[in-house]
Amino acid sequence: MIKGLHHNAYRCRDSEETRKFYEDFLGLPLAHTLKIEQTKTGRTTGAGVLHTFFQLDDGSCLAFFEAPDMAFDFKDQHDFDLHIALEVEPEHLERMLAKGRSEGREVRGVSDHHFIRSIYFRDPNGYVIELAAKVPGQESAMDPTKNGARAKLDDWQANKTASSAAA
């Protein structure tokens, strides 16, 4: 059975720039670093790959691969394509909003999603980072026995299929 998230891994342009954002700005400690010259399955990595891990309070990590000799299309991601949402306490949300603005960072929000309030930054790799604070009632909003999640998905699927067929 799946117990939880160990880590999510993404590519990065520069490990030190990535560390400055995740450790210095967000406060996630650099927990582990691996230099990979050959994978455990025997694939060589050319000039080598650096794999870094930044730890969250629950022990899970955000991880990054810097692979200088492997092409990767870095681009500013749209929130709908990819974003990383990290939970914070409500008072931390306001502090990070002020900190981001004072450092001249791109920051959006506060967005009220009715079950969380969020602010958004862009990391040095183009990924959207969402800081989300739960609001009262969040547990009920995320309870599928109360929120109608399955019925909404079924309705979406039925209407999407009908719309696609008509087009």
Rank of each mutant, 00 (worst) to 15 (best):
M96D: 01
R105Y: 09
Q38D: 00
H51T: 01
G46H: 06
F54T: 03
K99C: 00
A31P: 06
K146I: 01
V88W: 08
F121N: 08
G109F: 10
R105N: 02
N8K: 03
K40M: 12
A31R: 13
G137R: 04
L153H: 09
I119H: 09
G27T: 02
L28R: 06
R117Y: 02
F53P: 10
P68Y: 04
S111A: 12
E23Y: 04
D81S: 15
S163P: 00
P90Y: 03
D58G: 08
Q55T: 13
S102G: 02
K40C: 11
G109C: 09
S118E: 07
L82D: 10
F64E: 07
D14P: 05
M70Q: 14
P144H: 01
L97V: 03
C61F: 05
I129R: 01
F121Q: 07
R108S: 13
P68V: 03
P29E: 02
H113K: 11
I2T: 10
F65R: 06
D58F: 03
L131D: 06
E89Q: 14
D58A: 07
E94A: 15
G42V: 04
R108W: 14
F25T: 04
V128I: 15
K3Y: 12
I116R: 11
K99E: 13
L62W: 09
F65M: 07
D69E: 14
E91V: 02
P29R: 06
T41H: 12
M1V: 11
C61E: 14
M96N: 01
G4L: 07
Y127S: 09
L5A: 12
K99L: 15
